[in-house]
Design a protein around this nucleic acid. Structure first.
Length: 807
RNA sequence: GCGGUCGUGGCGGAACGGCAGACGCGUUAGCCUCAGGAGCUAAUGUUUAACGACAUGUGGGUUCAAAUCCCAUCGACCGCACCA
């Protein structure tokens, strides 16, 4: 029999250490501990029936590594986990299989928990939150009522995005591109009563708060674009022969002398107030009808082809020139932005230009420098105002200031800010969500449920299918609907809509600080101790929804004096996707899905964790590879075999590899902080290769290696640590520290190049002086040859790196 | 259309403006062996007998020196999308 090549049995050691960690409660955060706190957060998962995905492993592994490193660095770490468990997939599954969503959810959470533990994640399972738990959603409702109290909740009848497939109202965020976020169906417009959260009241604060958030520019830019701030002015254009005026928002008030027509949205109220004067009412109505039929998506798709109808019988007039100008109705103007009306300046706006061309309208030049027979001239850097009365000769920016001051003085306009962000449609007509704590009373109107009556529980019922009318299933449950008015005691009805899925996730990170509190959503002192989240990692796909929503809730609670910091997160990062082995997005239909639990079973959690971090740049998308996975298992096997060669006596680093060990400590430490996990692991591999090449290694060599390995492959690290004779676990063993003095090499290799091309190398002592190197370099035969007798014109010297001879 | 990110071996990917391809996978040859998805040694960008030459999507530029900085261009991905 050949020499048995030892390897470890992951199926044995992994559960062993998972149990020990749990028994010793290693990962339970300690409130008010004197150690410095570190709050690391991952986006809590939606517990779907499919269980954990490799994407989850990648998403959680960054903070897992950071958290384990922080514990070793002496921090009191809060690394919590929970479940964002309300939502459609569970409900749809429940309906299809005739199982109650509560039962489905409980089962899924159980599975998910087992899987998370099986991966060896060091979450604090004593603080688990479940958004569907009445003890949790009681506080979701409570915060909603606080917002209601402060006027941040309102109800409006509007057109909403409705998914006929899911039978549910969607927010703008959930229906981007006219498609349902969940099922991909075409969204249609439906008029409904909708609860809104007035997030726009926080637009400016949400924008400013980004200054206090450490995040990559793509994360910030995406949020900035979403908030979409524009500076400009409101200007009132009087309607001829009327006391009415048409108010517009423009970012280019400087071009007002070039406004040759007005455009209003088909939903604009002026069409009602002045309807008696409109001569082509029929035509307008037809246009309105056709616009209504178009979904948001179609309106966007048709953006190349402008349509519209001129209002006959009404003119506006330019408030500065008093000249009458025609008004059009067109769906390229949105009622939801600005005032739903614009002054059209075809000479200097692409859309207005297109419209003017199509309808044969006047195009007047008011900014010099373009060719208006070709296209609109939209340059704002170099243009000079012309044909613009008091603005003539001014550059654009100056003209803007001048005109706004002028309009303001004349009382016909004022400076204004607008945001693209819209108020948050905050209700769904589905069963599996937080009931909205509102009561309708015929006498008292809309009445909030008193705080002491919370939670408004979801009734446990058999029939929870949505209705085709778009009404919530709760509407059919008499026991739920019929109630007493808290104000007058009369008969009243409960709101039957539920909150959207984003509700519970908007504050879960606060609950983790005090998950079992039943007099408040979290104790203020605990919030102050743990908050803010020091580092939050999650997906790019949540940057415009969840991240903005949760920042909004936190800012609101801060304004109420209920949390300690305005911004909930100090630092936010985002992982890249793991694609299938074919380079395509993983999906069941493509058949390229990798099941992490199968990998754990066959290769072990340590291998999976290490591989997923080694696979590529953490922040970029990268394809899965089974072969690469095996390479990581081999790496761990190698470390395992290294154990046999550990000497028992010496307890210092081996002199031969001491320098490399210090370099590795430095490199791995820095790479982890920079989320360069792939290069951190590569550095560990280099060290392991080097140690393997030696006949023996010291105990200390092995200890440092295991400490550095621990965040990535904690089971192997613990097992070998124990085999080394340690009674204490490695969890809280101090993170290795490098000695800068030990980083210095005994010799350095200096490249000698001629005209930028490497020709030879010199091995010299560190910090060898230029003159010495120069002389040595010029004596090298290959350098002499390369120079070919040409005189040396210049010599560039980079200490310890290179000497370049220019000849 | 606008904004952003990115183009490097057969593959995943490394490279403070200073030896391109670290590390891993794969491949090839050899060793070891109760042929096994194990381990060990060596090689592995292209080209050349070799010295060399050529190589970071493409074309320019800056520099003693460019994958890295600048300009243009092509391609991929992501975000926004008639936002006045």
């Amino acid at each position: 029999m050949s020499a048995f090549v030892p390897s470890f049995n992951h199926a044995e050691i992994e559960p062993k250490w998972q149990e020990r960690w749990e028994k010793a409660r290693c990962f339970e955060a300690v409130d008010f501990d004197s150690k410095p706190k570190f709050y690391s957060l991952i986006e809590f998962p939606y517990p779907s029936g499919a269980g954990m995905h490799v994407g989850h492993i990648r998403a959680f592994s960054s903070m897992e590594v950071i958290s384990r490193k922080r514990r070793m660095e002496g921090y009191n770490v809060l690394f919590p986990i929970g479940f964002d468990a309300f939502g459609l997939p569970t409900e749809n599954y429940a309906i299809q299989n005739h199982i109650h969503p509560r039962a489905v959810t409980d089962r899924n959470i159980e599975t998910f928990t087992r899987q998370l533990k099986g991966a060896g994640f060091s979450f604090d399972f004593s603080r688990v939150v479940d958004t569907t738990d009445p003890d949790y959603y009681r506080w979701t409702q409570w915060i909603f009522l606080k917002m209601f109290e402060k006027g941040l909740v309102f109800k409006n009848r509007t057109y909403v995005n409705f998914c006929p497939q899911c039978k549910v109202v969607l927010s703008n965020e959930e229906s981007q591109g006219g498609e349902c976020d969940r099922c991909g169906s075409q969204v249609v417009q439906k008029e409904k009563d909708v609860w809104f959260l007035r997030i726009t009241a926080y637009a400016q604060k949400l924008l400013e708060g980004l200054n206090d958030l450490e995040a990559s520019s793509r994360i910030k830019v995406e949020q900035e674009n979403w908030i979409g701030k524009s500076e400009g002015a409101f200007i009132n254009f009087p309607i001829v022969d009327s006391s009415e005026s048409l108010r517009v928002f423009t970012t280019r008030p400087d071009t007002i002398f070039g406004a040759t027509f007005m455009v209003i949205a088909p939903e604009h109220p002026l069409l009602v107030t002045l309807k008696d004067r409109i001569r082509n009412r029929e035509e307008i109505r037809d246009y309105q009808d056709s616009a209504k039929k178009k979904s948001e998506f179609e309106r966007i798709q048709m953006n190349k082809d402008k349509t519209g109808v001129r209002l006959l019988g009404i003119h506006a007039k330019n408030p500065l020139t008093q000249k009458p100008i025609p008004i059009f109705v067109s769906d390229y103007v949105m009622i939801t932005y600005g005032t739903g009306a614009i002054m059209a300046v075809p000479g200097h706006d692409d859309r207005d230009y297109e419209f003017a061309k199509k309808f044969g309208l006047e195009i007047r030049e008011v900014i010099s420098g373009g060719d208006l027979s070709e296209k609109a001239h939209t340059d704002i850097e170099n243009g000079i105002l012309v044909n613009s009365g008091l603005l003539d000769g001014l550059p654009v920016r100056e003209a803007q200031k001048t005109i706004v001051a002028h309009l303001q003085a004349q009382g016909i306009g004022e400076a204004a800010l607008q945001f693209k962000m819209k108020d948050w449609a905050f209700n769904r007509q589905r069963y599996w969500g937080e009931p909205i704590p509102i009561i309708y009373c015929d006498r008292c109107g809309i009445v909030p449920v008193p705080y002491d009556q919370l939670p408004v529980r979801l009734p446990r019922v058999e029939a929870f299918e949505p209705t085709d009318t778009g009404e919530s299933p709760l509407a059919n449950i008499r026991d739920f609907v019929e109630c007493e008015c808290p104000k007058c005691g009369g008969k009243a009805r409960r709101e039957t809509d539920t909150m959207p899925q984003w509700a519970g996730s908007s504050w879960y990170f606060l609950r983790y600080t005090d998950p079992k509190n039943d007099h408040s959503f979290a104790d203020k002192n605990k919030l102050s101790y743990w908050g803010p989240v020091d580092w939050y990692n999650g997906g790019m796909e949540h940057v415009t929804r969840h991240l903005i929503y949760s920042r909004f809730w936190n800012q609101f609670l801060y304004d109420e004096g209920l949390v300690a910091t305005r911004e909930p997160y100090r630092k936010r990062t985002a992982q890249g996707l793991i694609l299938g082995a074919d380079g395509e997005k993983m999906s069941k239909s493509r058949g390229n899905v990798v099941n992490p639990m199968e990998i754990i079973e066959e290769f072990g959690a340590d291998t999976l964790r290490t591989y997923i971090l080694f696979i590529g740049d953490y922040e970029m998308a990268t394809p899965w590879s089974d072969a690469g996975l095996k390479g990581c298992r081999r790496f761990l096997d190698k470390i395992w075999r290294l154990f046999e060669k550990v000497g028992k006596e010496n307890n210092d680093l081996s002199p031969a590899t001491e320098n490399l060990v210090h370099k590795t400590i430095k490199g791995v430490s820095e790479d982890i902080e920079a989320m360069k996990f792939n290069t951190a692991i590569a550095k560990l591999m280099i060290l392991v290769n080097e140690l393997t090449a030696r006949d023996a290694l010291s105990r200390k060599d092995m200890e440092v290696l295991l400490a550095l390995l621990n965040p990535f492959a904690p089971h192997v690290a613990e097992e070998l640590w124990e085999l080394l004779g340690h009674a204490e676990m490695i969890v809280f063993h101090p993170w290795p520290v490098y000695d800068p003095a030990k980083l210095v090499e005994e010799t350095v290799e200096v490249v000698v190049s001629v005209n930028g091309k490497v020709r030879d190398k010199l091995i010299v002592a560190p910090n060898t002086e230029e003159a010495v190197l120069e002389a040595a370099a010029l004596r090298l035969p290959r350098i002499v040859e390369s120079l070919g007798g040409r005189p040396v014109r210049k010599i560039i010297f980079v200490p310890n790196k290179l000497i370049n001879i220019v000849g």
